[in-house]
Simulated scan of single mutants.
Amino acid sequence: MSKKIFNYFNKILPTILFLLVFQLTMSNCNRELAMDHFQVCDLFDNQGKCTEPWDKTKTYQLRIPANKKLKTWEDLSHFLYFQARETPGIVIYWNRDFTESEKKEFKSKNCHGVFVFYGRKIEMEGKEIGDNWMGFFHYLGTILEEEMKHRGRWTKEIYLSEVFPAPMEIGFHCGDKSFMTSTEIDLSIIK
């Protein structure tokens, strides 16, 4: 008798497992997509792991080679962009994996990271979408370039205290989903 029960159980076990996995998958897909948490970050890998996290404040310390002369905001911005390659950004982690239609929407032009730097909104140029995370970044050199051109100081002498420390909001906007957090960045030059 027990052998019959064992054989019967072995026959229905795959069906039970399939139904269980199917139910778990469907319940996950039916959950409303919501932001789980975020990390302000200078660098993240292709799995969404933030490798250079920071909290509410960040001081960028630039080491300038002795043979490099930075006299204008243009010089500094180009150094930040091409040599230092500092990229403040944010990684957003979600409560479940994205559906294919959500992934398609997030990869569209309607989804982007955003900075608010001295009251001016700047779209981030970098975007990466994972299974249940999205990351955005922008080059600090570009942020500084846009601000100093706006102030008419692009080709003028550098006075860090004109800009830094700087209040900055960072976040994203994707369709009906958006988020912003307040941060502050500072910059010091080490010769």
Results as ranks from 00 to 15, higher is better:
Ser161Thr: 13
Asp45Phe: 00
Ser101Arg: 09
Gly119Val: 01
His112Arg: 11
Leu13Asp: 10
Leu20Thr: 14
Arg85Ile: 08
Tyr81Asn: 12
Pro53Val: 03
Arg31Gly: 02
Leu33Phe: 03
Phe164Asn: 06
Asn30Cys: 06
Thr72Asp: 10
Gly152Pro: 09
Phe6Gln: 15
Ile158Arg: 10
Lys156Ser: 15
Lys49Phe: 02
Ile129Lys: 06
Asn7Glu: 14
Lys58Pro: 01
Asn30Met: 08
Gly175Asp: 07
Gln23Asp: 10
Met124His: 04
Ser27Thr: 13
Asp97Leu: 13
Ile170Arg: 00
Phe136Arg: 09
Lys127Glu: 02
Lys103Asp: 11
Thr181Trp: 03
Thr155Pro: 03
Gln61Arg: 14
Lys56Ile: 05
Gln39Ser: 05
Asp186Ile: 00
Tyr81Arg: 11
Pro65Ala: 05
Gln83Ala: 12
Thr142Ala: 14
Glu52Ile: 06
Ala34Val: 08
Glu100Ser: 14
His112Trp: 10
Cys41Val: 04
His112Gly: 12
Ser2Glu: 15
Ile185Cys: 00
His150Gly: 11
Ala166Arg: 00
Thr59His: 02
Leu187Met: 11
Leu24Tyr: 08
Arg151Asp: 08
Met148Ala: 07
Lys177Leu: 08
Thr25Trp: 09
Lys109Met: 10
Met134Lys: 04
Gly48Ile: 03
Ile122Gln: 05
Tyr93Lys: 09
Phe9Tyr: 15
Lys58Gln: 11
Met180Thr: 03
Glu128Asn: 09
Asn132Gln: 12
Phe164Trp: 04
Lys149Phe: 06
Ile5Pro: 05
Phe38Asn: 02
Met148Pro: 06
Gly141Thr: 09
Phe79His: 10
Phe106Asp: 07
Gly141Cys: 08
Cys111Leu: 07
Phe136Ile: 07
Leu70Met: 11
Tyr81Phe: 15
Gly175Gln: 07
Asn132Pro: 02
Phe117Ile: 01
Leu43Val: 04
Leu20Phe: 14
Val116Ile: 14
Lys71Glu: 15
Glu74Pro: 04
His173Ala: 10
Gly175Glu: 11
Gly89Gln: 04
Pro53Thr: 05
Asp55Met: 07
Ile189Ser: 00
Lys49Leu: 03
Pro14Tyr: 11
Lys4Met: 13
Pro14Lys: 04
Phe18Val: 11
Leu80Trp: 05
Gly141Leu: 12
Phe22Ala: 14
Lys71Pro: 02
Ile5Tyr: 14
Ser101Asp: 12
Phe38Val: 09
Phe79Ile: 09
Val40Asp: 01
Pro14Ala: 05
Thr99Cys: 06
Leu140Thr: 06
Phe115Thr: 04
Glu145Phe: 13
Leu70Gln: 05
Tyr159Cys: 07
Met180Trp: 01
Ser188Met: 07
Phe44Ala: 11
Trp154Asp: 09
Thr142Gln: 14
Glu105Cys: 01
Glu146Trp: 13
His150Val: 08
Leu13His: 06
Phe164Leu: 02
Asn7Thr: 12
Glu145Ser: 13
Asp131Thr: 08
Ser178Leu: 00
Gly152Glu: 12
Asn7Leu: 15
Pro14Asn: 05
Leu187Ala: 01
Phe82Ile: 12
Thr99Gly: 03
Trp133Cys: 02
Phe22Asp: 04
Asp45Asn: 14
Gln23Gly: 12
Asn67Tyr: 11
Thr181Phe: 02
Glu123Thr: 04
Tyr93Ile: 07
Arg31Cys: 03
Thr142Cys: 13
Cys111Ser: 14
Lys49Cys: 00
Phe6Glu: 15
Trp73Val: 06
Phe22Glu: 04
Phe117Glu: 01
Cys174Gln: 03
Ser101Cys: 02
Ala84Pro: 07
